[in-house]
C-alpha cells in the first residue's frame, strides 16, 4: 500500500508528510515532522500527554490517524510561545513550579490553553474536571491547578 500524502496546517504553517494508514497523528508529528513536544505516555487515550488541538478541538493525538489530519488545522505545544516570549500559562507554570519531570507538561499546557479559550474565568472545579484526562505522576496536581488559575487571572487582566 502506497503511503498517504497528507497536506495540513501545523501551528499556522502549511506542512506535508507521508504516512502509513495505521500511523497515529502523534507518530506523524514526532517522527515525520520532528515536533517532539507532544509526548507518548500510554498510547491509549488515558494520559493526555499527546494532547493537541485539531481544528480547535482538544484531542489525544495518539487516537487519531495521521491521514485524518488532511486539510485540518493542528496546534501543538510548539506553537504556544511567541518566539522567545512564553505564553502566560508557560510562565505561570514556571513560577508555581507546576512541573517536575515535565513529561505531562506539554499536554497539560495545550489542554489548559484550550480551556481558557473557551472559559476565561474557570472555577477550580472546572479546571480539575477539564484536566482530568491529563495525568501527572509528579506534582499532585495542586500546583498545576494554581498555575492555571493564576494565568487565567492574568490573562483576564485581573
Amino acid at each position: 500500500m502506497a503511503k498517504h500524502h497528507v497536506t495540513t496546517t501545523v501551528n499556522g504553517d502549511p506542512v506535508e508528510y507521508l504516512c502509513e494508514s495505521e500511523q497515529s497523528l502523534l507518530d506523524c508529528l514526532r517522527d515525520e515532522l520532528d515536533l517532539i513536544g507532544a509526548k507518548e505516555g500510554c498510547s491509549s487515550g488515558d494520559c493526555g500527554a499527546c494532547s493537541v488541538l485539531l481544528d480547535g478541538r482538544l484531542v489525544c493525538s495518539c487516537l487519531i490517524l495521521g491521514v485524518e489530519a488532511e486539510g485540518k488545522n493542528v496546534e501543538t505545544i510548539e506553537g504556544m510561545a511567541q518566539g522567545e516570549e512564553l505564553h502566560p500559562l508557560q510562565r505561570k507554570f514556571l513560577e508555581h513550579a507546576a512541573l517536575q519531570c515535565g513529561i505531562c507538561t506539554p499536554g497539560v499546557l495545550v489542554a489548559a490553553k484550550a480551556l481558557l479559550a473557551k472559559n476565561p474565568d474557570p472555577t477550580e472545579t472546572q479546571v480539575r474536571y477539564w484536566l482530568a484526562g491529563n495525568l501527572c505522576r509528579c506534582t499532585g496536581y495542586d500546583k498545576i491547578v494554581r498555575a492555571v488559575m493564576d494565568a487565567a487571572a492574568e490573562m483576564r487582566g485581573a
Binding site: 487515550g45 484536566l131 484526562g133
Partner: peptide, 9 residues
Amino acid sequence: IGSTQVQGR
C-alpha cells in the same frame, strides 16, 4: 464518556 480529549472525538 472519558476526558475532555475523548469528548472531542
